[in-house]
């Protein structure tokens, strides 16, 4: 990992403090094994293992437009299954009250976190849809974004 750029240091410290304050309430719905994953991803720093696409993806915002057209995300607890490197979740990260992205690819989750500003960071967990590490009735909305 390279040195932290001075301009990002304050943001990261603020995020870490905010995360530490709020995560206790959230972590109770996650099983013990996955708590370690959550903490690991939270402390990733600037690591990114993924190759980015060269394409401009959906600049018209069609995917987001259609999602918010059928679902009111404001104030909701939302889970995206198979969030990958965050191309979609990054577009609506500021809308829900609580947002969790899961994906089995740890490197993708690292890349996803880099796409989203600190104040809107979702909780990222490496997990699969067939075995969700959450208590029953934890979410208002579950999104399968190209992951079924």
């Amino acid at each position: 990992m390279g040195p932290t750029h001075p301009s990002t240091r304050t943001t990261r410290t603020t995020f870490t403090r905010k995360c530490n304050e709020t995560i206790d309430s959230f972590i109770s719905i996650i099983n013990t094994k996955k708590q370690a994953d959550l903490l690991r991803i939270r402390n990733l720093g600037d690591v990114s293992l993924e190759v980015e696409m060269k394409a401009t993806r959906d600049p018209e915002g069609a995917e987001l437009h259609h999602l918010v057209g059928v679902c009111d995300l404001a104030g909701k607890q939302v889970l995206e299954i198979g969030c990958g490197d965050g191309k979609f979740i990054s577009q609506y990260a500021g809308l829900p009250n609580k947002l969790v992205g899961i994906d089995p690819e740890f490197g993708d989750l690292c890349a996803a976190r880099k796409k989203i500003s600190a104040e809107n960071w979702p909780y990222f967990i490496d997990a699969i849809g067939e075995s969700l590490p959450f208590a029953s009735q934890s979410f208002d909305l579950v999104i399968f974004a190209s992951s079924l």
């Binding site: 995917e63 999602l67 679902c71 067939e130 075995s131 029953s136 208002d140 579950v142 999104i143 399968f144």
Partner: peptide, 22 residues
């Protein structure tokens, strides 16, 4: 896929929503 959908059913609140976009 069916297992994932059943897991989604479990973690959703009553009248919760799934969105399948692909």
């Amino acid at each position: 896929m069916v297992h994932a959908l059943k897991e989604a059913h479990r973690v959703l609140v009553p009248q919760g929503i799934i969105v399948d976009v692909r």
